[in-house]
Each structure stands twice: as C-alpha cells, then as structure tokens.
Amino acid sequence: MKKVIISVAALVFLASSFLALSYFNKSDVEGTITITVIDEIGDIVSSKEFDFTSEDTLFDLLDQNFEVGCANSSYQLSSECEKILFTSRVLMKIDDVETDWINSYIAIYKNNEYSLLGIDNIVLNDGDVFVFEYKTVGGDN
C-alpha cells in the first residue's frame, strides 16, 4: 500500500510539474519576430522578419524559411529534424552555418539574452528578436 501511495504521489508530482511549466511557457497568439543568423566569422548571413500565429513555433518558422539540420541521437548532423518527446531538438545547421556539436554549436539569443532553452521550448512573443550565432565550444558568450 505504501508503495502504491508513493508511486501515485510521484506521478502526480510529475504531471503537475509539467502542467505548471507549460502554463508559464505560453506563446502570444500572433505577432512578428525577427530572425538573424550569424556565421563563424561573425557576419550576418540573414536577418528577416516573420509573422507567426498560435500554430507556429520557432522551429517551424526556421524550418519553413531556412535549410536546417539537427543532431540525431548520436549528435551527428542529420537533415531529419523529428520532434523529440519531452525535450528539444538540437539545431546544428542553418543554411551554410554548420556546426559539429563537439567543437562548435549554434547559440540562440532571445532579445539579446543567451537562451538556455532548446529551440522547441522557446516561446514566441510579438516583437521578439532571435539571433542564431555560430559559437566555438569554450568561447566567450
């Protein structure tokens, strides 16, 4: 009986935690965001505005407008960017900006702040500016 109670409590804790997290992570219904892509030498490769609705995610907008690549389960670059259960895809390529995960990665900045959330967990708000920048592992922020 004790084990059943503990198990139920654990499952309630799990479910309520995710409900609370999703409640605080809600996107705006519609708006416009700016996406900028910066390559390894610091040049702006692209900087455009995109309209979004409640159906869109940041990844959707990137996928529709750029050639993107994601990490597979072994952190190798793959063109198949399938949604991952519970967590976020790892972006490794946007057009010609390509990273290898070990030595380089794509940093995401939301409104000039380094994002610690993966691309699937970032919420969209009207007027947001996203910068996707090539970074060397261990390099300055």
Binding site: L21, Y105, Y114, L116, L117, K135, V137, G138, G139, N141
Partner: peptide, 16 residues
C-alpha cells in the same frame, strides 16, 4: 564549456 556566467537560468532550464 558554453561560457555561461549565470547559474539560475541553467538551473531552471534543467528542472524538467
């Protein structure tokens, strides 16, 4: 590794 200086945002992001 990533050159991040702030602790708490990473702490929060890791909670799930």
């Amino acid at each position: 590794q990533l050159g991040i200086n702030e602790l708490w945002p990473y702490l929060v992001a890791d909670i799930p």
